[in-house]
Design a protein around this nucleic acid. Structure first.
Lengths: 209, 209
DNA sequence: TAGATTGTTAATCGATTAACAATC
DNA sequence: TAGATTGTTAATCGATTAACAATC
C-alpha cells in the first residue's frame, strides 16, 4: 500500500467502474477474475487495470487471478465506502427530491439524514422517511448528526453561499448540482456536477467527430 | 476552422464551461474579454484557453481581446447548440421526472418532446406541458417528431435494451442515467452519467489525497 | 511607437500501453 | 515443468504549459 504516488482522477473514476462490475459478478457467485476478463467487461485494457491497481501496491499475486471478494473489499476501502457516511441535501426542488428518492446511494454506505430548504411549504414533507427542514436548522443538524457530505441542489445564485455555509460548519465534502461552478477552500472536497455539460458533450459528439 | 485535429474530450468539456461563463458576462453587458480574464474566472490557465480555441483555428486576432458575442456564437456552433434539438426521456421515475422539470436545457436549444414509460398509471401525466406516453408509441413518435436525443432513466436491467431500441429507430445520441454502462454501435453517440460515480469520487477525495 | 494580446510551435508533464521478469 | 497471470519498469502517446513571434 504505497498510496503516496498521486492517483490520477481517471484512475479513481475507473476504480468505481471496476467495483460496479465486480459487485455484479459477485452476486453471480463469481469468485475469481483475471485482469483480462475484467478489462473485457469494463471496456478498458487489462494493462490499464493492473496499472490502476499498481498505484495501491497491487491486489493479487503473479500467476493467480484476482479474488473477487478481496478486490471488492480493497476498492471499497479506497473509495471510502467501508464505513457509512451521513449526507444532507440542500434544496428540495426537483433535483433534490429526485436524489432523495434515488436508492442506489444507500447500498454504497451513503445515508441521507436530512433535506433542507427555505420554502416553508416544503417543511415536513418526507421522502423515504427523511424530512424536509428549515435551512436555519442546518448548522445545528450537521453538528448533531455527524454529517460529512452536503449535496447542493439549490438555484445557481445561492449555490456559492450555501457552499460557504457548509464549509463554515465543517462539512467534509460537497457535491454540487447547481449549474454554477462552486469553489471550496483547501481541505474541503468538491465535485461539481453541472448537468448541462453532459448534454452539451453529447450534442458535440452527435455533430460528428 | 481546421476541425480535423482530434479534439480532446477535456477540451469539449471546458468549452462548455467557457460558454457558461461568457453567457453570464454577456448578460452583464461585457463586450470583450482576454484569455487571461476568462481563465481567471473559469479557473484554468490562459494558455489552455488559447490552445483550446486553437483546435478550431482561433477566434480572435493578435493584439485584440476576444469579442464576447462572437465567442458565444462560435462555441454554440461547436457544441451543436446553434439549432434546436428534440429530445425524449425514457423512464418517468424520479430521475426522469426531475430532468423533465429541469429548465436549463431549453435555453440551450434542447426541446423535450415526450416522456415514455411502461407503467400505465403514469400515462397522461404532464410535466411542463409534456405528456407521459406508452413506450410502445416510442418508435412512431421518434419518427414523427424528428427526435435526435434519447435520455435513459429506466432501471438498470432494461437500460441496454432501451438503448438498442433507440439505436434501431435511428436516434443520434443517448444520454444514459441508469446505473449501468450502456453501449451503442459506431455512429450513435453515448454519454453514460452514472450518478454513483460522482459520489464515490467525492468519497475518495474526502479520505484525503 | 509601446503595450497588450493572440496564434502557434516547442517543451514539459502526465497517463496509457507495451514488454517482460517474477511467480504461482 | 509448462502455461497463465500478475507486478513493475520502460516506451509511447496525448494533453497542458511555456515561450515567443506576429499583430493590433
Amino acid at each position: 500500500m504505497l498510496t503516496k504516488k498521486k492517483i490520477p482522477q481517471s484512475t479513481v473514476w475507473r476504480l468505481s467502474q471496476y467495483l460496479n462490475c465486480l459487485s455484479l459478478l459477485s452476486s453471480e457467485k463469481c469468485r475469481e477474475i483475471s485482469s483480462h476478463e475484467l478489462a473485457e467487461r469494463v471496456g478498458v485494457k487489462s494493462t490499464q487495470i493492473r496499472q490502476d491497481f499498481h498505484y495501491f501496491g497491487g491486489f493479487g499475486q503473479p500467476g493467480c487471478r484476482y479474488n473477487v471478494g478481496q478486490l471488492i473489499g480493497e476498492l471499497e476501502a479506497i473509495l471510502g465506502l467501508d464505513k457509512p457516511q451521513n449526507m444532507i441535501i440542500v434544496g428540495a426542488g426537483n433535483i433534490g427530491q429526485a436524489l432523495a428518492h434515488y436508492d442506489k446511494f444507500e447500498p454504497l454506505g451513503f445515508r441521507l439524514k436530512g433535506i433542507f430548504d427555505v420554502n416553508p411549504r416544503l417543511f415536513g414533507l418526507k421522502i423515504r422517511g427523511v424530512g424536509v427542514r428549515d435551512v436555519k436548522e442546518l448548522p445545528r443538524f450537521v453538528k448533531d448528526h455527524h454529517i460529512r457530505i452536503g449535496i447542493i441542489t439549490t438555484p445557481a445564485r445561492v449555490a456559492q453561499s450555501v457552499a460557504d455555509l457548509l464549509v463554515r460548519i465543517k462539512i467534509k465534502g460537497i457535491w454540487n448540482f447547481s449549474p454554477m461552478n462552486v469553489t471550496a477552500p483547501e481541505g474541503v472536497s468538491m465535485v461539481n456536477e453541472n448537468l448541462s455539460v453532459g448534454l452539451m458533450t453529447l450534442s458535440h459528439k452527435i455533430k460528428g467527430g
